[in-house]
């Protein structure tokens, strides 16, 4: 059970091992976000950002079985190829692990206070929020709550 907002990098395999200790665990799904070709600086709101992520995780846990999790988001200066964000979910079955992982990423992108500033050759500019991200988060609302996917 880990939520961390940090400037340091993270190691996927270490985090996956750490959340796989429960003997009921049969599936671990993870997502890693990576900086594309533009260097960036990520700003956050210390205190609120951690709380916002915890609330998103708790919402996911009302919908799906989550035995353990690690959510890590970096801030500060990041270069192309750097890891930005990790969401890793341990569950008994893959359907819950996949769904909770995607739900947390979709909500994190629209609810957690982070702001990206891209450093282009012609100058720096703040990234505008995407309507597509709002739509990705909104489609979860149409699911009946709490939603449990059928296990095979």
């Amino acid at each position: 059970m880990k939520v961390s907002v940090q400037s340091d990098d993270f190691d996927l395999s270490t985090e996956v091992i750490d959340i796989s200790m429960n003997t009921r665990t049969g599936a671990v799904a993870s997502f890693v976000g990576v900086v594309r070709d533009i260097p960036m600086t990520l700003e956050h709101y210390p205190g609120m950002t951690e709380n916002a992520i915890k609330k998103i995780v708790e919402e996911a846990r009302t919908r799906w079985q989550v035995l353990d999790y690690a959510v890590i988001h970096r801030y500060g200066d990041l270069q192309p190829g750097d890891q930005i964000v990790l969401v890793a979910i341990a569950s008994s079955h893959r359907a819950d692990a996949f769904a909770a992982c995607q739900f947390i990423m979709d909500y994190l992108k629209t609810q957690a206070p982070f702001w990206k500033k891209e450093h282009h050759p012609e100058g720096a500019r703040w990234v505008n929020a995407l309507e597509a991200d709002d739509e990705a988060a909104a489609r979860w609302k149409s699911l009946k709550q709490p939603q449990r996917l059928v296990q095979k």
Partner: peptide, 10 residues
């Protein structure tokens, strides 16, 4: 009270 633009993390 914090004022900020729509968020762009992830």
């Amino acid at each position: 009270v914090a004022f900020f633009p729509p968020v762009t993390g992830g």
